[in-house]
């Protein structure tokens, strides 16, 4: 459970830099080796950027003969770009909101009360994070058929929230443990109920942590392809991850440039959110585990 455990510990930037300055800094062979490895990682990404600017892009990586934004202009249509991105937004925001509310409610008793129930519950939840989600998609499809929930946006949101919950409960409880209980006790003396104290005192104090959990779940949902691919069938409901696959799976042979342009526009929101979390939470660690098939 490295991710949630580390997420709650915000390392002051000064401390981290002092530690990394070991006895061996700035060696040129290490620079060269690292740059070579970095180049290998960069190449596939480079194709994406160059092809998006090239009106007759192919699979080749090459500097466009005439760089321009034609590809971006070509995909800027409501049906092709805006509707899928809107669906992605609804799906991801809904998933993150449901997850956050359920995780906060569940984390409160687990963080504040001592009970024999806590440890087994937390380990059961942790076990849930280990479940290969792709393996349960066939059974989930069967379940959705039986309950007549196929192609239902709310049901898909609830399912995606359930898959994100185990990790979210762990992270939220760690953030909540960091808020001292003594702060609430003053409020109880004034007659506030547990839930009022949670809302008015605990949550505002952990809002940064809540932001991390929200963004973490949002990024996961935004990038998810397989779940909406199986559960959302009609074009009107499909998020960008699926529409990009179905559209370019059928017409892709000619439109690599547009594919790359669409991919970039679709990726920008999560790249931006990642930067926010990595900066704000002190450590990019908060996002470990964000990629699960």
């Amino acid at each position: 459970m490295t991710a949630p455990a580390k997420a709650s510990r915000v390392v002051p930037p000064g401390e981290a830099t002092a530690r990394t300055r070991g006895p061996y800094r700035s060696s040129t062979p290490a620079d060269v080796a690292l740059l070579l490895l970095g180049a290998c990682f960069l190449l596939p990404l480079l194709w994406l950027v160059l092809a998006s600017l090239d009106a007759d892009a192919s699979h080749e990586t090459r500097v466009p003969a005439q760089a321009g934004l034609e590809n971006f202009a070509a995909i800027m249509t409501p049906a092709l770009l805006l509707q899928p991105l809107w669906n992605s937004l609804v799906l991801s925001t809904g998933t993150a909101a449901v997850t956050l509310v359920a995780a906060v409610l569940a984390a409160y008793p687990l963080s504040r009360y001592r009970s024999r129930f806590n440890t087994p519950f937390m380990y059961t939840v942790l076990f849930g994070t280990c479940l290969p989600i792709t393996a349960i998609m066939v059974p989930v499809y069967g379940l959705f058929v039986q309950l007549e929930l196929l192609d239902s946006m709310p049901a898909t949101i609830l399912f995606m929230a359930a898959t994100a919950l185990p990790m979210a409960i762990w992270m939220t409880r760690n953030f909540m443990d960091a808020v001292p209980a003594s702060l609430e006790e003053a409020a109880w003396v004034d007659g506030a109920s547990r839930m009022t104290a949670l809302r008015t005192i605990v949550l505002p104090l952990m809002r940064q942590g809540l932001g991390v959990v929200f963004i973490f779940v949002f990024i996961q949902a935004w990038g998810n392809f397989f779940v909406p691919f199986v559960l959302l069938l009609s074009e009107a409901n499909q998020p960008a991850a699926v529409s990009i696959f179905t559209f370019f799976g059928q017409h892709g042979a000619v439109a690599y440039g547009q594919l790359a342009a669409f991919s970039i526009l679709y990726s920008l929101p999560v790249l931006a959110l990642y930067v926010i979390v990595a900066k704000g939470a002190g450590s990019p660690f908060a996002l470990s585990g964000a990629v699960r098939g």
């Binding site: 190449l43 596939p44 990404l45 194709w47 994406l48 092809a51 699979h59 990024i219 935004w222 990038g223 998810n224 392809f225 991850a241 990009i244 696959f245 370019f248 690599y256 594919l259 790359a260 991919s263 679709y266 990726s267 999560v270 790249l271 990642y274 996002l287 964000a290 990629v291 098939g293």
Partner: peptide, 14 residues
């Protein structure tokens, strides 16, 4: 960090 479908397309092209 890229969405998995985008990473998959990039790898496919590569």
């Amino acid at each position: 960090v890229l969405p998995e479908i985008v990473a998959a397309f990039a790898a496919y092209a590569y």
